[in-house]
Amino acid sequence: MRHLALLTLFSLSLNAAVLDPEELRVAQVETDLPELLTPLAPISDGAIDHHRSAADEQQHTQAMTLSGSRLWRHAVARVQSGDLDDRPLYWNRLLVRREMKQQAAGYQPADWQQQVSIDAFERASRGMSDIRFNKGTDLKILVTGFDPFFLDRHLNQSNPSGLAALALDGQVLHLNGRSAQVEAAMIPVRFEDFDQGLIESLLTPYLEGNKVDMVVTVSMGRSDFDLERFPGLNRSAKAPGNRNIFTGATKEAPLAPRLMDSPLAGPEFVEFSLPVSAMQRAKGPWKINDNHQVATLEKGEFEATGLDELSGQTSVSGSGGGYLSNEISYRSIRLGNLLEAKVPTGHIHTPRIAQYEADTEAAIVAQIRAMLTQAIGSL
């Protein structure tokens, strides 16, 4: 698994010379929603200046890594000081990426060198280079959130899971005399990054040797909170990722994801290991469901009681669905099983929001915080 950390240095973008659909949307944001760029504009402007001024390839990559980390830290600081909005980080990251590709003056690396710098900036701006459990707590909890998605429907869409990641990063939770530090990272809504091993690369250092005490992946979901009991292997959602790439998978013809050059190998279903009963004690406006709903080609949709019942079935939808929410959960649990980790791992689906709802998202984040706090008693 360790080789994935090096291979996925190149996994976070496809072509350094061509703007992708995510980057192309920035122009519309500049025109229609400039307020989404303004809060972090000084940081993204500084990153673009660093891109222009670096003297050589090594300095360029180092400068862009530092710029990405600075963008992440400022986004975290803004959210934790009360500006509850995940969208400025998303759009400023894309603005810098666009400018890195378009700038011809000054530093002019070859395409592969440009790619290295773009990927280094991208990973750092997602908090992936900033995971440091250094506060001397009893426990360590790693949390991931997702970017906004379906942006061609609503350009101003927010994602409460991403907001939760920013709000919780570096926070220390307390319960009954025990403490837990939370570190967070932001995941792209892009099938190709998953196929190129991003999740395995990110999580291996923490699951290998049980270096954290819990891994919780979070995404936006349904009407309440769902703890997704049985993630499935296959993709079946027709929806595209943020680069408008479709997998071709359907509920009638589900498809396995890939890991580098091969189909992802694993059981059709896995089971999560989050401390459900403890997390369900968290107070808040929404129910917290232990969701057993799955779908298979052979039996359709049903409530699974255990992995034995799912043996011999072909996964269509896991408890988390057939999109990347289900997949991050499946990949993280599969990876932990391969590494023989003893780390409770699983997925939280948050209540869904329409575009941007500041008060609702604040309540969602508060209930996630409460769920993680309650989990301390079972870790």
Results as ranks from 00 to 15, higher is better:
Leu155Phe: 06
Ile141Gln: 05
Phe146Ile: 11
Ile131Gly: 02
Ser161His: 09
Asn134Val: 11
Gly162Trp: 05
Ala164Glu: 12
Leu168Trp: 10
Arg132Pro: 00
Gln171Pro: 01
Ser158Lys: 02
Gly162Asn: 08
His154Phe: 07
Asn134Met: 04
Asn156Pro: 01
Arg153Phe: 13
Leu168Cys: 07
Phe149Cys: 06
Ser158Thr: 05
Phe150His: 08
Pro148Thr: 15
Ile141Thr: 05
Val143Ile: 13
Asn134Arg: 04
Pro148Gly: 14
Val143Thr: 03
Asp138Ile: 02
Phe146Val: 13
Gln171Cys: 11
Gly170Asp: 01
Ala167Phe: 07
Asp130Ser: 04
Thr144Cys: 05
Gln171Asp: 10
Asp147Gly: 03
Leu139Pro: 06
Phe150Cys: 05
Asn134His: 04
Leu151Phe: 07
Leu163Ile: 01
Lys140Val: 00
Gly136Phe: 07
Asp169Ile: 01
Gly162Arg: 04
Leu142Lys: 01
Phe150Pro: 00
Asp147His: 14
Asp169Lys: 01
Gly162Asp: 07
Phe146Leu: 09
Gln157Ala: 14
Asp130Val: 00
Ala167Met: 06
Asp169Pro: 06
Phe133Ala: 10
Gln171Tyr: 08
Leu139Lys: 15
Ile141Tyr: 06
Ser158Phe: 06
Val143Asn: 02
Pro160Ile: 14
Ile141His: 00
Ala164Tyr: 13
Lys140Asp: 10
Arg132Cys: 02
Leu142Ser: 02
Asp169Tyr: 04
Leu166Gln: 04
Gly162Cys: 13
Asp138His: 14
Leu142Asn: 01
Ala164Met: 13
Ala164Cys: 12
Asp130Ala: 01
Leu163Met: 09
Ile131Glu: 01
Leu163Ser: 09
Lys140Ser: 15
Leu142Pro: 00
Leu166Ile: 03
Leu139Ile: 05
Thr144Met: 06
Arg132Lys: 10
Thr137Val: 07
Arg153Trp: 13
Phe146Gln: 00
Phe149Asp: 13
Pro160Leu: 13
Arg153Lys: 12
Lys135Thr: 00
Asn134Cys: 06
Gln157Val: 02
Gln171Val: 14
Lys135Val: 00
Lys140Gly: 09
Asp152Gly: 09
Leu142Met: 08
Ser161Thr: 11
Gly162Phe: 13
Lys140Cys: 09
Leu139Arg: 15
His154Ser: 10
Gln157Phe: 02
Gly145Asn: 07
Phe150Gln: 11
Pro148Leu: 11
Leu163Asn: 12
Ser161Ala: 15
Pro148Lys: 09
Asp130Asn: 04
Lys135Ile: 00
Ile141Ser: 05
Leu168Val: 09
Ala165Gln: 11
Ile141Phe: 09
Phe150Asn: 09
Gly145Ala: 08
Leu151Lys: 15
Thr137Lys: 07
Val143Gly: 01
Asp152Lys: 05
